Simulated scan of single mutants.
Amino acid sequence: MSAPTATLLISCPDQQGLVAKIAHFIATHHGNIIHADHHTDFTNQLFLSRLEWSLEGFQLSRSQIGTQFSELAESLRANWQLHFSDCKPRMSIWVSKQDHCLLDLLWRQQAGDLPVEIPLIISNHDTLQPIAEQFNIDFYHLPINKESKARQEKQQLALLKQYNIDLVVLAKYMQILSPQFIAAFSSTINIHHSFLPAFPGANPYQRAYKRGVKIIGATAHYVTEELDEGPIIEQEVVRVSHRDSSDEFIRKGKDVERSALARAVRLHLQNRVLVYNHRTVVFD
């Protein structure tokens, strides 16, 4: 097995010598950089970077890396994150009645394609509980209506804390999260069944069919208070034609939903997504 790595995600005001300063920090402590990717947003004069280096032979302990890098980060006025490749995140999948995205994520995780633990599935219906049992994952059925929403979201937050969840994936979870929930737990990815910003909200395939569109798609994005307006991580499209019925739109759409969501989750888990100014840089 390869040695574990550390990854820095950095955003800061653009200036000369940034790459050299950050690389010098790693090299000074005998770190070997194995991946480096940089981007400058000239409109906002912002520098964004992802650096990954091997921890084999690195002279700082994991606890020391953040402490010592924070001094450099402060001088650069940088926002930054530090991640370690052998620290496997814990993910909860939320669903309603459709199983295609849930099964796809579970199969990929089981095959080793997604470096994550999945100890918890939450649903507002009990339809997919047999799938959770098949994969030996704890399942909680929390029905939601207007009167119970606040109470059930408190229970959901309690479960996320109980299971030490780092990431929630809404895999066709047909409920809108409240601003209070999002403020309490912001690391959430949703799959929307249209090529945003076209057709946000409910029934996008039916609306696309009525408009006679020639391309439909799916969008994986981070969840924010504004419905279907969160920073976009991944999108995929497929061609349709006048010969396709609305049911065929849905069938084709499910294929792109699966792949777009899986890629977005993988990119997030690999620490390749940096959010800024309500958009993302994806270091793929």
Rank of each mutant, 00 (worst) to 15 (best):
V281S: 13
N145H: 08
S61E: 10
D228Q: 02
G112A: 09
A220Q: 02
I65N: 01
L55I: 11
I176P: 04
L18Y: 03
D113A: 10
I121W: 06
E74G: 11
E117L: 12
A171Y: 11
L48R: 05
T28C: 09
S63T: 13
A36N: 15
T5M: 09
I165Q: 00
A183E: 14
H24N: 13
S186A: 15
L160C: 08
H278D: 14
Q134T: 14
W94F: 15
N79Q: 10
I26F: 02
L60P: 11
A260L: 05
A150K: 14
E71N: 10
D113K: 15
E153Y: 13
V223Q: 02
I215G: 04
S96A: 01
A150G: 06
V169M: 08
S70E: 10
H38F: 08
D14I: 02
I26Q: 03
A264R: 02
V282Q: 08
D228F: 01
E226H: 13
R263D: 09
P4D: 04
I121G: 10
H278G: 02
S63A: 14
L18P: 03
A220G: 05
E257C: 00
G112I: 13
G212L: 05
S123H: 06
S49T: 14
A78G: 03
Y205H: 08
L82H: 15
Q59G: 13
R90V: 15
S148M: 00
Q162D: 12
L51A: 04
K210V: 03
Q16D: 09
K254T: 12
T5P: 04
L160Y: 15
A3S: 12
D99W: 01
P13V: 04
Q162Y: 03
S2H: 06
I165S: 05
N164S: 14
L274S: 07
I137P: 08
Q15F: 00
Q110K: 15
Q134M: 10
I191V: 11
G230D: 00
W94Y: 13
P179G: 01
D86W: 02
L196C: 09
S2W: 08
V19E: 09
R266M: 08
L48Y: 04
A20E: 10
Y163F: 15
A171R: 12
I165G: 02
G212H: 07
F25S: 03
R90P: 07
E234I: 04
V116E: 07
